[in-house]
């Protein structure tokens, strides 16, 4: 069974004052079909984990390993990681002026699967996926993320996840900035992908709200660049009650 394995991962971010360590030894194993929630206070390194796994140039892995199905993820370029089956739904999707959503989706799909998708079935698939996410089909002609509302950007990220069919998807605070309706629509999209493709999911969130719609198999609490506690979905319920104060009290080195 395909797995995403992270072992003792240390990551620094480039700052003007030099490299600053953020992740201090993360261990995590995600198997296909599993949903892992990573929760934690602001500044604990959750999003750094997402960006570092995807290969963002701002982050440097200083030690540790990350493998996808035994393949060394960290040795791959950003696009190679995506083609190997890793997907990152970004917290702040970037605008690409003059490139239509339709063109972008087709180009990316072609890159990921190594061949252009069959025209007729692809068009149908895109339209169907957009309808499921309650996106107007006129959306396909707009420039990527340009002038999109926060909710539209997140739907567009999940649309890609459904269409590209990754083996592992990292959802980086996909729930942030969504109203309840949008949160439900987006969560349905994630659940559809889970049912249809057996994708393994790393769901990064500050809040427990999204976990009412997407049931995690495992919950990991991130504090100060490592996992401070792990458990099942009941751990999320406890965090809902208690918040992160307990962890921060003991380990107050990271500011938000």
């Amino acid at each position: 069974m395909p797995t995403l394995e992270i072992r003792d991962l240390h990551v620094s971010v480039e700052t003007k004052e030099g490299p600053k360590p953020i992740l201090r030894g993360v261990d995590l194993t995600i198997a296909s079909g599993e949903t892992h929630a990573i929760m934690g206070p602001n500044g604990s390194g959750k999003s750094t984990l997402a960006s570092a796994l995807a290969g963002h140039p701002k982050y440097t892995v200083t030690s540790g390993t990350a493998t996808l199905d035994g393949e060394d993820l960290l040795a791959m370029s950003v696009d190679e990681r995506a083609r190997a089956g890793l997907f990152l739904a970004m917290q702040y999707p970037v605008e690409v002026s003059g490139v239509s959503v339709a063109n972008f989706l087709r180009t990316a799909k072609t890159a990921i699967s190594g061949e252009a998708p069959a025209l007729r079935t692809w068009g149908k698939e895109v339209r169907g996926a957009m309808e499921n996410l309650r996106m107007d089909t006129a959306f396909a002609e707009r420039s990527v993320n340009e002038g999109f509302s926060g909710g539209e950007k997140k739907r567009h990220e999940i649309l890609q996840m459904e269409l590209f069919k990754p083996r592992f998807a990292i959802l980086d605070e996909t729930d942030s900035g969504l109203d309840v309706d949008a949160l439900r629509v987006v969560s349905e999209g994630v659940n559809r992908a889970k049912e249809q493709t057996d994708v393994g999911i790393l769901l990064i969130t500050h809040y427990t709200r999204i976990l009412r719609y997407i049931k995690p198999d495992f919950v990991h609490v991130f504090v100060d660049g490592k996992i401070a506690e792990e458990g099942g979905s009941e751990l999320a319920d406890r965090l809902e009650e208690e918040g992160y104060d307990k962890y921060l009290g003991a380990n107050k080195t990271v500011s938000a």
Binding site: A54, G55, H56, P57, S77, V78, D79, R81, A82, R83, F87, L88, M90, P93, V94, V96, S97, G98, V99, N103, F104, T107, A108, A111, I112, S143, Q160, F164
Partner: peptide, 21 residues
């Protein structure tokens, strides 16, 4: 980064952006 994270190689990503421009 955004385009590469969708599997699009760097040269192709640059072309997309310039064509779009």
């Amino acid at each position: 980064f955004y385009l590469q994270a969708r599997g699009i190689p760097e040269t192709e990503a640059r072309k997309l952006v310039v064509r779009g421009f």
